[in-house]
Design a protein around this nucleic acid. Sequence first.
DNA 1: CCTCAGGGATCCG
DNA 2: CGGATCCCTGAG
Length: 301
Amino acid sequence: MIIKKPINLELTQLSGQTSQPPWKQVDESFREVLMVGGKPVLFDVKQSGKNLDFNFTGDISKKEAISRLNYIYDLDFDLGKFYKYLSDHEELRQMSEFCQGLRLFLANDPFECIISSICSANNSIKRWTKSVSDMKEKWGNNYFDDYYTFPDKEIIQDLYEDEDEESLFESKPCGNNLKSCGVGYRAPYMKKASQMFTLEMDLSQIPEMDYEEAFETILKVPGVGPKVADCILLYGFNFKEAFPSDVWIKRIVSYLYFDGKDISVAKVRDFGMEEFGEYAGYVQLYLFHYARMSGLMDRLK
DNA sequence: CCTCAGGGATCCG
DNA sequence: CGGATCCCTGAG
Protein backbone atom coordinates (compact mmCIF):
# COMPACT_ATOMS: atom_id res chain seq x y z
CA MET A 1 0.00 0.00 0.00
CA ILE A 2 1.33 3.38 -0.99
CA ILE A 3 1.20 6.59 1.00
CA LYS A 4 1.48 9.40 -1.49
CA LYS A 5 3.81 11.76 0.33
CA PRO A 6 7.39 12.34 -0.84
CA ILE A 7 10.12 10.92 1.41
CA ASN A 8 13.62 9.49 1.10
CA LEU A 9 13.20 6.55 3.47
CA GLU A 10 16.81 5.38 3.58
CA LEU A 11 18.09 8.88 4.26
CA THR A 12 15.50 9.39 6.98
CA GLN A 13 16.24 6.01 8.56
CA LEU A 14 20.02 6.22 8.51
CA SER A 15 20.54 9.88 9.37
CA GLY A 16 21.34 9.18 13.02
CA GLN A 17 18.37 10.93 14.56
CA THR A 18 18.42 10.16 18.27
CA SER A 19 14.75 9.28 18.58
CA GLN A 20 15.49 5.59 18.04
CA PRO A 21 17.91 3.32 16.15
CA PRO A 22 17.12 2.59 12.49
CA TRP A 23 14.59 -0.14 11.84
CA LYS A 24 15.82 -3.59 10.85
CA GLN A 25 16.79 -3.82 7.18
CA VAL A 26 15.39 -6.86 5.37
CA ASP A 27 16.03 -6.82 1.63
CA GLU A 28 14.60 -3.50 0.42
CA SER A 29 12.47 -2.99 3.51
CA PHE A 30 12.82 -1.47 6.96
CA ARG A 31 10.91 -3.36 9.65
CA GLU A 32 10.04 -2.74 13.28
CA VAL A 33 7.43 -3.73 15.82
CA LEU A 34 5.49 -0.84 17.35
CA MET A 35 2.79 -0.79 19.97
CA VAL A 36 -0.40 0.71 18.56
CA GLY A 37 -3.20 1.12 21.09
CA GLY A 38 -1.63 -1.53 23.29
CA LYS A 39 -1.26 -4.04 20.45
CA PRO A 40 1.98 -5.13 18.80
CA VAL A 41 2.12 -4.38 15.09
CA LEU A 42 4.93 -5.34 12.73
CA PHE A 43 5.48 -2.63 10.14
CA ASP A 44 7.31 -3.15 6.85
CA VAL A 45 8.12 -0.02 4.86
CA LYS A 46 10.04 0.49 1.65
CA GLN A 47 10.73 3.11 -0.97
CA SER A 48 8.40 3.21 -3.97
CA GLY A 49 9.37 5.98 -6.35
CA LYS A 50 9.27 9.11 -4.22
CA ASN A 51 6.72 7.62 -1.85
CA LEU A 52 6.37 5.11 0.94
CA ASP A 53 5.16 1.56 0.34
CA PHE A 54 4.03 -0.27 3.47
CA ASN A 55 2.59 -3.46 4.90
CA PHE A 56 1.69 -4.39 8.43
CA THR A 57 0.86 -7.43 10.52
CA GLY A 58 -1.28 -6.97 13.61
CA ASP A 59 -4.76 -6.47 14.93
CA ILE A 60 -5.39 -2.88 13.85
CA SER A 61 -7.17 -1.20 10.94
CA LYS A 62 -5.44 0.08 7.83
CA LYS A 63 -6.45 3.58 8.86
CA GLU A 64 -4.68 3.21 12.22
CA ALA A 65 -1.56 1.89 10.50
CA ILE A 66 -1.42 4.81 8.10
CA SER A 67 -2.02 7.24 10.90
CA ARG A 68 0.93 5.84 12.84
CA LEU A 69 3.27 5.91 9.84
CA ASN A 70 2.17 9.44 9.03
CA TYR A 71 3.26 10.43 12.51
CA ILE A 72 6.54 8.49 12.73
CA TYR A 73 7.80 9.73 9.37
CA ASP A 74 6.23 13.16 9.74
CA LEU A 75 4.54 12.74 6.37
CA ASP A 76 2.15 15.64 6.82
CA PHE A 77 5.03 18.10 6.99
CA ASP A 78 5.03 20.07 3.72
CA LEU A 79 8.52 19.52 2.28
CA GLY A 80 7.80 21.60 -0.82
CA LYS A 81 6.98 24.62 1.27
CA PHE A 82 10.07 24.01 3.39
CA TYR A 83 12.28 23.82 0.29
CA LYS A 84 10.89 27.13 -0.87
CA TYR A 85 11.79 28.57 2.52
CA LEU A 86 15.33 27.25 2.15
CA SER A 87 15.74 28.59 -1.36
CA ASP A 88 14.50 32.00 -0.20
CA HIS A 89 17.38 32.22 2.25
CA GLU A 90 20.86 32.76 0.86
CA GLU A 91 22.67 30.82 3.62
CA LEU A 92 20.41 27.77 3.35
CA ARG A 93 19.95 27.58 -0.39
CA GLN A 94 22.41 24.74 -1.00
CA MET A 95 21.03 22.40 1.64
CA SER A 96 17.96 20.89 0.03
CA GLU A 97 19.85 19.34 -2.88
CA PHE A 98 21.90 17.20 -0.48
CA CYS A 99 18.93 16.15 1.63
CA GLN A 100 16.03 15.62 -0.78
CA GLY A 101 13.25 13.78 0.98
CA LEU A 102 14.83 13.81 4.42
CA ARG A 103 12.19 13.96 7.11
CA LEU A 104 12.02 13.83 10.89
CA PHE A 105 12.07 10.27 12.24
CA LEU A 106 9.80 10.67 15.24
CA ALA A 107 9.92 8.40 18.29
CA ASN A 108 7.47 5.56 18.92
CA ASP A 109 7.22 6.61 22.48
CA PRO A 110 8.41 9.57 24.59
CA PHE A 111 9.94 7.44 27.34
CA GLU A 112 11.90 5.36 24.84
CA CYS A 113 13.09 8.56 23.23
CA ILE A 114 14.27 10.01 26.54
CA ILE A 115 16.32 6.97 27.59
CA SER A 116 17.63 6.59 24.07
CA SER A 117 18.66 10.26 24.00
CA ILE A 118 20.40 10.05 27.37
CA CYS A 119 22.37 7.17 25.90
CA SER A 120 23.37 9.25 22.89
CA ALA A 121 25.10 12.00 24.88
CA ASN A 122 28.85 12.18 24.26
CA ASN A 123 28.60 8.92 22.38
CA SER A 124 29.07 7.72 18.84
CA ILE A 125 26.03 6.92 16.72
CA LYS A 126 27.24 3.35 16.26
CA ARG A 127 27.67 2.77 19.94
CA TRP A 128 24.35 4.21 21.14
CA THR A 129 22.32 2.34 18.52
CA LYS A 130 23.94 -0.90 19.66
CA SER A 131 23.25 -0.09 23.30
CA VAL A 132 19.57 0.62 22.64
CA SER A 133 19.20 -2.52 20.51
CA ASP A 134 20.83 -4.59 23.24
CA MET A 135 18.49 -3.16 25.87
CA LYS A 136 15.46 -4.03 23.73
CA GLU A 137 16.61 -7.61 23.26
CA LYS A 138 17.44 -8.11 26.92
CA TRP A 139 14.48 -6.50 28.65
CA GLY A 140 11.86 -5.62 26.04
CA ASN A 141 8.95 -7.78 24.94
CA ASN A 142 9.50 -10.19 22.08
CA TYR A 143 7.07 -10.26 19.15
CA PHE A 144 7.01 -11.68 15.62
CA ASP A 145 10.03 -13.96 16.14
CA ASP A 146 12.87 -11.50 16.26
CA TYR A 147 11.45 -8.07 17.11
CA TYR A 148 11.55 -6.41 20.50
CA THR A 149 9.85 -3.40 22.05
CA PHE A 150 11.71 -0.99 24.31
CA PRO A 151 11.62 -2.02 28.00
CA ASP A 152 9.17 -0.29 30.35
CA LYS A 153 10.28 2.28 32.91
CA GLU A 154 9.38 -0.11 35.71
CA ILE A 155 11.91 -2.58 34.32
CA ILE A 156 14.77 -0.15 33.78
CA GLN A 157 14.50 1.49 37.19
CA ASP A 158 15.15 -1.84 38.87
CA LEU A 159 18.04 -3.05 36.71
CA TYR A 160 21.50 -3.46 38.20
CA GLU A 161 23.93 -0.80 37.08
CA ASP A 162 26.94 -3.01 36.51
CA GLU A 163 28.37 -6.46 37.05
CA ASP A 164 29.62 -5.66 40.53
CA GLU A 165 26.17 -4.70 41.75
CA GLU A 166 24.63 -7.69 40.05
CA SER A 167 27.02 -10.14 41.69
CA LEU A 168 26.16 -8.70 45.13
CA PHE A 169 22.59 -9.95 44.77
CA GLU A 170 22.83 -12.81 42.29
CA SER A 171 24.75 -16.02 42.76
CA LYS A 172 25.09 -16.38 39.00
CA PRO A 173 25.60 -13.01 37.27
CA CYS A 174 24.43 -13.29 33.67
CA GLY A 175 24.80 -9.88 32.12
CA ASN A 176 21.54 -8.65 33.58
CA ASN A 177 22.88 -5.14 34.11
CA LEU A 178 22.82 -1.86 32.19
CA LYS A 179 26.55 -1.51 31.64
CA SER A 180 26.58 -4.86 29.86
CA CYS A 181 24.89 -2.92 27.05
CA GLY A 182 27.84 -0.55 26.84
CA VAL A 183 26.08 2.51 28.23
CA GLY A 184 29.02 3.31 30.54
CA TYR A 185 28.59 6.13 33.04
CA ARG A 186 25.08 6.81 31.72
CA ALA A 187 23.69 3.76 33.55
CA PRO A 188 22.75 5.58 36.78
CA TYR A 189 21.18 8.41 34.74
CA MET A 190 18.96 5.95 32.91
CA LYS A 191 17.87 4.28 36.14
CA LYS A 192 17.13 7.54 37.95
CA ALA A 193 15.28 8.94 34.95
CA SER A 194 13.08 5.84 34.79
CA GLN A 195 12.37 6.08 38.49
CA MET A 196 11.42 9.73 38.08
CA PHE A 197 8.74 8.84 35.54
CA THR A 198 7.23 6.09 37.70
CA LEU A 199 7.13 8.40 40.70
CA GLU A 200 6.57 12.08 40.02
CA MET A 201 6.90 13.25 36.43
CA ASP A 202 3.88 12.78 34.17
CA LEU A 203 5.03 12.83 30.56
CA SER A 204 1.48 13.21 29.25
CA GLN A 205 1.57 16.83 30.48
CA ILE A 206 4.49 17.81 28.23
CA PRO A 207 2.55 18.24 24.96
CA GLU A 208 0.21 20.70 26.70
CA MET A 209 3.07 22.98 27.70
CA ASP A 210 4.67 25.81 25.76
CA TYR A 211 8.24 25.20 24.62
CA GLU A 212 10.08 26.91 27.45
CA GLU A 213 8.05 25.17 30.15
CA ALA A 214 8.50 21.79 28.46
CA PHE A 215 12.24 22.46 28.10
CA GLU A 216 12.69 23.38 31.76
CA THR A 217 10.71 20.31 32.80
CA ILE A 218 12.68 17.84 30.70
CA LEU A 219 15.94 19.49 31.78
CA LYS A 220 15.30 18.23 35.33
CA VAL A 221 15.76 14.63 34.17
CA PRO A 222 19.16 13.19 35.22
CA GLY A 223 21.58 12.93 32.32
CA VAL A 224 19.61 15.42 30.26
CA GLY A 225 21.31 18.73 29.42
CA PRO A 226 20.22 21.42 26.96
CA LYS A 227 21.16 19.60 23.76
CA VAL A 228 19.51 16.33 24.74
CA ALA A 229 16.42 18.16 26.09
CA ASP A 230 15.94 19.87 22.73
CA CYS A 231 16.36 16.51 20.94
CA ILE A 232 13.78 14.88 23.20
CA LEU A 233 11.26 17.66 22.57
CA LEU A 234 11.89 17.52 18.83
CA TYR A 235 11.96 13.75 18.23
CA GLY A 236 9.96 12.54 21.20
CA PHE A 237 7.23 15.18 21.34
CA ASN A 238 7.25 16.72 17.86
CA PHE A 239 8.06 20.27 18.99
CA LYS A 240 9.33 21.52 15.64
CA GLU A 241 10.55 24.82 17.07
CA ALA A 242 13.40 23.01 18.84
CA PHE A 243 16.94 23.76 17.63
CA PRO A 244 19.25 21.19 19.27
CA SER A 245 22.69 22.75 19.31
CA ASP A 246 25.97 20.95 19.76
CA VAL A 247 29.55 21.59 18.76
CA TRP A 248 28.86 20.68 15.12
CA ILE A 249 25.78 22.84 14.74
CA LYS A 250 27.79 25.61 16.37
CA ARG A 251 30.58 25.30 13.80
CA ILE A 252 28.15 25.14 10.90
CA VAL A 253 26.01 28.09 12.05
CA SER A 254 29.12 30.08 12.85
CA TYR A 255 30.45 29.41 9.34
CA LEU A 256 27.17 30.24 7.59
CA TYR A 257 25.99 33.20 9.66
CA PHE A 258 28.81 34.64 11.78
CA ASP A 259 31.80 34.68 9.48
CA GLY A 260 33.41 31.76 11.32
CA LYS A 261 33.48 33.63 14.63
CA ASP A 262 33.47 31.41 17.71
CA ILE A 263 30.17 31.77 19.56
CA SER A 264 28.74 29.75 22.41
CA VAL A 265 26.45 26.77 21.87
CA ALA A 266 23.81 28.52 24.00
CA LYS A 267 23.82 31.53 21.68
CA VAL A 268 23.61 29.33 18.63
CA ARG A 269 20.51 27.75 20.15
CA ASP A 270 18.91 31.15 20.78
CA PHE A 271 19.85 32.31 17.30
CA GLY A 272 18.41 29.20 15.65
CA MET A 273 15.10 29.35 17.47
CA GLU A 274 14.74 33.05 16.74
CA GLU A 275 15.85 32.88 13.11
CA PHE A 276 14.10 29.69 11.98
CA GLY A 277 10.97 29.64 14.16
CA GLU A 278 8.64 26.76 13.30
CA TYR A 279 11.30 25.37 10.92
CA ALA A 280 14.09 25.26 13.51
CA GLY A 281 13.98 21.49 13.97
CA TYR A 282 14.08 20.81 10.26
CA VAL A 283 16.79 23.36 9.63
CA GLN A 284 18.92 21.75 12.32
CA LEU A 285 18.37 18.31 10.78
CA TYR A 286 19.22 19.58 7.31
CA LEU A 287 22.23 21.61 8.47
CA PHE A 288 23.81 18.56 10.05
CA HIS A 289 23.33 16.35 7.02
CA TYR A 290 24.22 19.01 4.54
CA ALA A 291 27.48 19.55 6.39
CA ARG A 292 28.15 15.83 6.52
CA MET A 293 27.41 15.12 2.89
CA SER A 294 28.87 18.21 1.29
CA GLY A 295 32.23 17.78 3.00
CA LEU A 296 31.75 21.01 4.96
CA MET A 297 32.05 19.13 8.24
CA ASP A 298 35.52 17.85 7.39
CA ARG A 299 36.65 21.36 6.51
CA LEU A 300 35.34 22.82 9.76
CA LYS A 301 37.40 20.46 11.95
C1' DC B 1 51.07 -0.51 22.06
C1' DC B 2 49.37 4.25 22.06
C1' DT B 3 46.09 8.58 21.55
C1' DC B 4 41.81 10.63 20.50
C1' DA B 5 37.10 11.82 19.60
C1' DG B 6 32.34 10.53 19.74
C1' DG B 7 25.75 15.18 17.34
C1' DG B 8 27.42 16.28 26.11
C1' DA B 9 26.32 16.38 31.08
C1' DT B 10 27.86 17.28 35.52
C1' DC B 11 30.43 19.13 39.05
C1' DC B 12 33.53 22.51 40.63
C1' DG B 13 35.65 26.78 41.08
C1' DC C 1 30.73 31.68 32.56
C1' DG C 2 35.52 28.04 31.65
C1' DG C 3 37.55 23.66 32.40
C1' DA C 4 38.25 18.85 33.88
C1' DT C 5 36.29 14.44 34.06
C1' DC C 6 33.12 10.82 33.01
C1' DC C 7 32.45 4.99 30.20
C1' DC C 8 34.14 2.68 26.46
C1' DT C 9 34.50 1.57 21.59
C1' DG C 10 36.47 2.18 17.06
C1' DA C 11 39.61 4.58 14.08
C1' DG C 12 44.20 5.99 13.29
